[in-house]
Simulated assay, not measured.
Amino acid sequence: MGGAVALLARDDVPARAEAPRRTPVTSSPAPAPSGPTASASPSATPSATPSSSPPREIQVPPEGPGTFTGARIGGEPQGEGRIRRYKVEVEDGIDLDPDEAARAVSAILGGPRGWTRDTAYGFQLVPSGPADFTVRVATPGTTDRLCFVTTPSSKGNVNCRVEHSVVVNLKLWVQGSPQFDGPIEDYRALIINHEVGHEIGRGHETCPGPGQPAPAMMQQIKGLRGCTANAWPYDSQGRYLAGPFVP
Score class of each variant (00 low, 15 high):
1 M>N: 03
189 A>V: 06
146 L>F: 08
198 H>G: 07
184 I>H: 01
53 S>R: 14
119 T>D: 12
225 R>W: 08
133 F>S: 05
218 M>F: 06
39 S>I: 03
8 L>R: 13
169 N>V: 09
1 M>K: 02
172 L>V: 01
72 R>L: 01
118 D>F: 04
26 T>F: 08
146 L>W: 10
52 S>F: 02
120 A>W: 00
103 R>M: 13
167 V>I: 15
181 D>H: 03
106 S>V: 09
17 A>L: 14
192 I>M: 02
186 D>E: 14
65 P>A: 14
227 C>V: 10
112 P>I: 11
119 T>G: 05
228 T>I: 10
207 C>H: 10
4 A>Q: 06
101 A>W: 03
99 D>E: 07
97 D>N: 13
100 E>L: 06
181 D>V: 07
125 L>I: 04
244 P>N: 11
77 P>L: 02
65 P>G: 12
199 E>P: 09
171 K>T: 10
96 L>Y: 02
202 R>V: 06
197 G>H: 00
191 I>G: 03
99 D>W: 01
20 P>D: 05
234 Y>R: 03
51 S>M: 07
149 V>D: 07
80 E>K: 15
19 A>H: 12
43 S>Q: 15
247 P>F: 06
190 L>G: 01
177 S>W: 00
177 S>A: 15
169 N>I: 08
32 A>Y: 06
86 Y>M: 10
101 A>I: 04
135 V>H: 06
199 E>I: 14
84 R>K: 10
75 G>N: 10
126 V>Q: 10
7 L>S: 04
166 V>L: 12
183 P>N: 01
223 G>P: 01
151 T>H: 04
129 G>V: 11
190 L>S: 03
187 Y>D: 05
179 Q>E: 09
65 P>K: 14
141 G>T: 09
75 G>S: 10
142 T>K: 03
148 F>T: 04
60 V>I: 07
27 S>G: 09
60 V>H: 02
189 A>R: 05
193 N>C: 07
55 P>R: 11
207 C>I: 10
77 P>F: 00
38 A>I: 13
134 T>G: 08
28 S>H: 09
1 M>G: 13
23 T>E: 12
102 A>I: 13
55 P>W: 00
135 V>E: 09
230 N>P: 00
75 G>K: 11
59 Q>L: 04
208 P>C: 13
218 M>V: 05
74 G>D: 12
243 G>T: 08
114 G>C: 05
1 M>R: 05
24 P>T: 05
74 G>P: 04
